[in-house]
Each structure stands twice: as structure tokens, then as C-alpha cells.
Write a protein that binds this DNA or RNA. Sequence first.
DNA 1: AGTTAAACCTGGTTGC
DNA 2: TGCAACCAGGTTTAAC
Length: 275
Amino acid sequence: MPELPEVEVTRRGIAEPLRGAKVVTLRLGKPLRWPLGQRPDALVGSIIGGVGRRGKYLWLSLLGGRAPGGLLLHLGMSGSLALTEQAPAPGPHDHFDLVTDRGTLRLTDPRRFGAVVWSPALDAAPASRLLAGLGPEPFDDALTAESFHAALHRRRAPIKAVLLGGEAVVGAGNIYACEALHTAGIHPATRADRISRPRAARLLDAVRTTLARALELGGSTLRDFRDAHGIDGAYQAEAQVYGRAGLPCGRCGATVRRVVQGQRATYFCPGCQKR
DNA sequence: AGTTAAACCTGGTTGC
DNA sequence: TGCAACCAGGTTTAAC
């Protein structure tokens, strides 16, 4: 679920209230994808310096205390974060609580593909090898049609798989990769290195407008996602192809198709997205 | 090196 | 109604 818009919506919901908050307690539930990598009580007393984002990861910097550094969080497929003044007793899917003097940040994640990993780094960038291979942020000015085209040119895989890979640009997951390709009129099976410079420019533009629109609508809620205040996203109602197999394309009326690429469902319109 | 499959885990939906 | 099979927003790791 959580692709860049959902993660950024979450970040915006917690950044202001948590800046400067003091850590009171940490509570761990069932194991997540990786162990925390630090004793929970070593983080008690530290101050949250800020909340950043890199791709689909969140970064909470922790200043002072016995273990300065930060927490790298990932929401996996089914994770969401809630910030409440006083959290109710943890349910069966609540696997991490960061209790602060300004409220409790709780990770709820039924499938437990999410992660909370402590790192001694002061900044997100070198915090973890998890961030090492990530491509450019979609709204970074340094990402241009030229550089994007060059990145696509290095890959022979289908463009849909390349978008999910996050080397050319991070942030688009299954929903937004499908939607952006539809907007750009590019067939998902097109080899990335065969995409012309003008079409690469069009695709980058589509990725940006798709992510920006989803951000405006609070992301997509298919099932589990809620923002930090418990609010559903609304983008899913605007999806043109994702999850719409057998239904007519809103633009041309052709029947949306579902195929499988690299173990992931891909939705596209055979009318708008010719090979 | 580069692509593809398997793995992680739970729960909702679909079909027999 | 019961139960097996399939599906889901992601990403690492192992295997060709």
C-alpha cells in the first residue's frame, strides 16, 4: 500500500507535533521485518529532532540520550502510523509504540512487512544500506528528462518493472506506476531502453503529476492505509486503471486489462497504451 | 551482471 | 456453510 504519497502524507501528519518531543517509552510487539538493532530503553530520554522521508522510508532523528542516531521506518504493504495523545491498549496488529511527552506514535501492520530500525547515523542518507540503492526523488530538480531518459536507457526490463525498481525514480509503487504509465500512454511491457527521449519526458511528467495528485487526496486507501490522524486516502476513486480489470477505461472506453509482470499485477488500457 | 522466483505474514475475497 | 485457493500497497535474498 504505502507508496510515496501515503508515506509523505503520514510524515506531514507527525512532523510538527513530534519535533522536539521527548521519548518516554518504547513498546515492541511481534517482530517486524528486521530487529530494532538497539535496546529500547537506550532511546528513552532522547529528543526527536525531526521527521524526514527518503523514498518510502521515514527517518526520525533522535538527539541526545544514550543512543543518539535515528529510527528508519518502513510501512511495508499494510502498515500505517497513528499519532494520538493517549493510545488505547495495543491490538494484535500494533507492533511498535513510541511514547513521547507529546503523544504516542503507533505502527499498526497486520502483515508485518514493515520495519523500524535504529541507526547511529545522524542523518538519513548514510543511515542504512537500505537507502543506498535508491534513485532520485521524483520532485528533485536534479532529476530531469535527460537524466531520467539516460537511466531508462540502461535497463532492458519492462518499463513497469523499472519504475517499481526505483532506480530511475523512487516513490511509485504498483498503483502509481500503473496510473503514470496510463497517463503517459505507454504500454507497461515496453522495454525501458526503447523509450524515446520525448516519451521519457512525458513519463517523468506523468509520474510527478500522479504522485502530486495522490498527495493532494491524502493517498490511496485500498484496505489498511490511514494517515496519522486516522483519515482514509481518496485517490483510489480517481484511479483510471489500477484495480479496474474488465471495466471501461475512463478516457477511451476500451476494457482495462490485468496482466502479471514480475509477480505483480499490472493494469493497463489496451486502447490508450499501445506497444 | 541482470532477470526471475521465493520468501517474509495475515486476512479478505472468490469459487467449488 | 465450509474450506481451499488466490489475492493484496513492498523489498530483500537466493537462485538461475
